[in-house]
Design a protein around this nucleic acid. Structure first.
Length: 392
DNA sequence: GCTAATCTAAGCTAGTGAGG
DNA sequence: CCTCACTAGCTTAGATTAGC
């Protein structure tokens, strides 16, 4: 899966535009040469080298063409040549700047669109770099510190995480917050970040476009996933050992609130596999359960056999569990007039019960923000009516 | 066509200083 | 005074190239 928010040292778009404009027409080899010359002089944590003031170091540490290019970047757009990696990575990752046959950097059509701030390309990059997801998170949680944002943001990018550590994502988040603050989408007050009305508008417009399609994709993916898990459960139920199956039903009955649940002897059970008591207030009655782990649909004979042995087992009621299904005649036989009804539980219902009572399965709940109340976050002042409602 | 060497992009984290 | 934000540089995974 393609990771969202991949560009390292994610720059502000303002700086990226300046960098790309400055690099248009520069030979890629010249840039590489300057980058290498700088790289060779980088320090270590023990003997640190300062790169914060290019006016100081460009002349002292670079010569010739390297020096000229560094000057070009610094004197004009004030881009520190030491920290140009992010801008170049962005340009590379999204095909904004490419080398021509002569090895010279040229703005592509996409690059020109980006510099002209055309919404389509900006939105595409925002999407791939986790900006839109970040705005959504902020819209949901309101004013927040970075530490409050990072986990929900990671979840929004890749539910369950994508292998990158929280520390990594914290630094990525920092870069992206700087980016959205620069664009006026988010306002920063000390450690607190909050969406501006412009940011809210942008987040909403992106969401309205995405919501339907994203929600549909999610729904269909969930439906497919559920169907796959059910089908797997059904396969396992069909092949599991019959005696294990009886015990599985026993566990299920206990989870459902039955008492004194016992699996009867494996042979000579007169069609009864499990006995259990069901309590109703102060009284309780005995229920006899027949378990059929067979592929074929259950026929009326099985129903009648169970009903016949209820008396011997001192049971008032009977239930048949199967992994398959019941024939039409069997269903008729189960609920005739004047005699004791027999409850029938087929494979589908059984799987529902196992999932509902978490027997043999682990169920994870997924929390989704499915709608955002635009009115509540409106940039317009409150109307008199709204004020009145709020007070009431 | 395979392996080793080299290169590149991106992740990690120590250290420092600001904020509450 | 402690926690959090941020910088800066090292390390490493993965891709690419060279050598056999």
């Amino acid at each position: 899966m393609k990771k969202i928010a991949r560009t390292p040292w994610f720059p502000t778009y303002q700086r990226a535009r300046q960098m790309m404009t400055a690099m248009d027409g520069v030979a890629a080899s010249d840039f590489r040469s300057m980058d290498e010359a700088i790289g060779k002089q980088m320090g270590t944590p023990q003997s640190q080298v300062s790169w914060s003031d290019p006016d100081e170091w460009i002349d002292a540490r670079l010569q010739g063409k390297d020096r000229d290019l560094a000057r070009q970047l610094w004197d004009g757009p004030k881009l520190n040549p030491r920290y140009s990696g992010g801008e170049m990575a962005l340009a590379r990752n999204y095909g904004l700047l490419e080398t021509d046959t002569a090895g010279v950097y040229r703005l592509t059509a996409r690059g020109q669109a980006f510099i002209a701030q055309q919404p389509a390309i900006i939105r595409e990059i925002d999407e791939a770099e986790g900006i839109t997801q970040l705005l959504s998170v902020l819209a949901t949680i309101g004013t927040a510190q970075r530490k409050d944002i990072v986990v929900p943001w990671m979840e929004a990018l890749a539910p369950g995480g994508d292998g990158r550590s929280q520390g990594t994502m914290e630094s990525k988040l920092y870069d992206r917050l700087v980016n959205v603050v620069e664009r006026g989408l988010v306002e920063r007050d000390g450690h607190k970040y909050v969406l501006t009305s412009q940011g809210r508008k942008y987040a909403t417009s992106v969401e309205v476009q995405q919501k339907n399609s994203a929600k549909l994709t999610l729904d269909s993916a969930l439906a497919t996933y559920r169907a796959e898990q059910r089908s797997r459960l059904r396969d396992l139920l069909r092949t599991m050992h019959p005696y294990r199956f009886e015990h599985l039903i026993r566990t299920l009955l206990m989870a459902m609130g039955y008492e004194n649940v016992e699996v009867t002897k494996q042979s000579g059970d007169g069609g009864i596999d499990v006995l259990a008591d069901l309590r109703f207030g102060v009284t309780s009655f005995r229920e006899a359960i027949q378990v059929k782990r067979v592929q074929q649909n259950i026929q009326p004979g099985t129903v009648n056999e169970l009903r016949g042995s209820l008396h011997n087992a001192k049971a008032l009621k009977g239930t048949i569990f199967t992994v398959a299904s019941f024939s039409k005649k069997a269903r008729e036989a189960a609920a005739p007039d004047n005699t004791v009804p027999i409850t029938l539980v087929d494979g589908d219902e059984l799987i529902d019960l196992l999932i509902k009572h978490h027997i043999g399965v682990t169920v994870t709940r997924v929390e989704l923000v499915t709608d955002i109340n635009d009115q509540l976050f409106s940039s317009e002042p409150m109307t008199a009516q709204e004020k009145q409602d709020a007070d009431a």
